[in-house]
């Protein structure tokens, strides 16, 4: 007897499902094909497969600088967003009142407001603060826009956390700091990790903010890809895209793995 609920699905439904999967995934696979082209422009490989553009990517100074810059910015903004977002979510959870609901809502503003509007605002603001085209400027912007992901995932994890565990910890003599470190964080770790992964991905392929507030000294990977597409149809772009997709997929797999371990 099939109990998983998938045993009795008709062939029609099954083929529809695969059709949708193809619709979602196939365009992405084109990138991989293009990235190994033997031509000098963006195209599918004809005579044979060539890894020249991967070689070009990893030996080219500008591309490597951009990858490094993006990586540093993504790491720094992830660490800060996770720290602040987790503390905010825990704080709201502990208060558990109307004000904390409001704060949680407020935290979602960066993903509710169109990025371009947000970017414009930050741009204006950064002029006065002299933060344009600086690591700090972009990192702060990415912290702010990455926060919602952390607040959402950590709040979700906390919804399943028994508040009596916190009381138990306090009654056993642990300070609030110790309770946070030894009881709360270990029990909501999957949520924190998910939040970190989403915050990282967010910063790693964020373009709009990078376009507005950075340009010369700071030139992130998505920014360089954007310029590359606008200026030339260099297949190196496809190689970069392939690398980006590989990194994102592996991060999402890590996320799925940590979630499954919690269950």
């Amino acid at each position: 007897m099939s109990t998983n609920g998938f045993g009795n699905i008709s062939i029609m439904t099954r083929s529809m499902a695969w059709l949708i999967v193809c619709f979602l995934v196939l365009p992405i696979t084109i990138v991989f094909a293009v990235s190994v082209t033997d031509k000098h422009y963006l195209s599918l490989p004809e005579q044979g497969i060539s890894f020249q553009y991967y070689e070009k990517l990893f030996t080219s100074g500008p591309w490597m600088t951009s990858i490094l810059q993006s990586f540093v910015i993504a790491c720094a903004s992830t660490v800060a967003a996770v720290l602040l977002g987790t503390l905010c979510a825990i704080g709201c959870w502990r208060l558990g009142n109307r004000a904390s609901d409001f704060v949680r809502m407020l935290m979602l503003v960066p993903i509710m407001v169109p990025t371009i509007v947000y970017a414009l605002g930050i741009y204006q603001f950064w002029i006065d603060l002299r933060l344009l085209d600086s690591y700090t400027g972009l990192i702060i912007a990415h912290i702010v826009t990455g926060l919602p992901y952390v607040v959402i995932t950590v709040s979700t994890a906390l919804a399943g956390f028994d508040p009596r565990l916190e009381q138990a910890s306090l009654s056993l003599g642990a300070s609030i700091g110790q309770t946070l470190r030894l009881v709360i964080i270990p029990n909501i770790k999957p949520g924190v990790i998910s939040g970190a992964i989403f915050a990282f991905i967010h910063s790693w392929d964020e373009l709009v903010l990078a376009l507005f507030i950075a340009g010369r000294a700071v030139f992130t990977l998505p920014r360089r890809m954007w310029d590359g597409i606008n200026e030339s149809l260099d297949p190196t772009m496809a190689a970069v895209a392939a690398v980006l997709i590989a990194i994102t997929v592996s991060l999402l797999c890590t996320d799925a793995y940590t979630r499954s371990r919690r269950a």
């Binding site: 028994d162 009596r164 009381q167 138990a168 009654s171 056993l172 003599g173 609030i176």
Partner: peptide
């Protein structure tokens, strides 16, 4: 609570 030095057994035990 953490300064009172009182042992407590919770409903549902609240083991970590």
């Amino acid at each position: 609570p953490e300064a009172r030095n009182l042992g407590m057994v919770f409903q549902g035990y609240a083991l970590f």
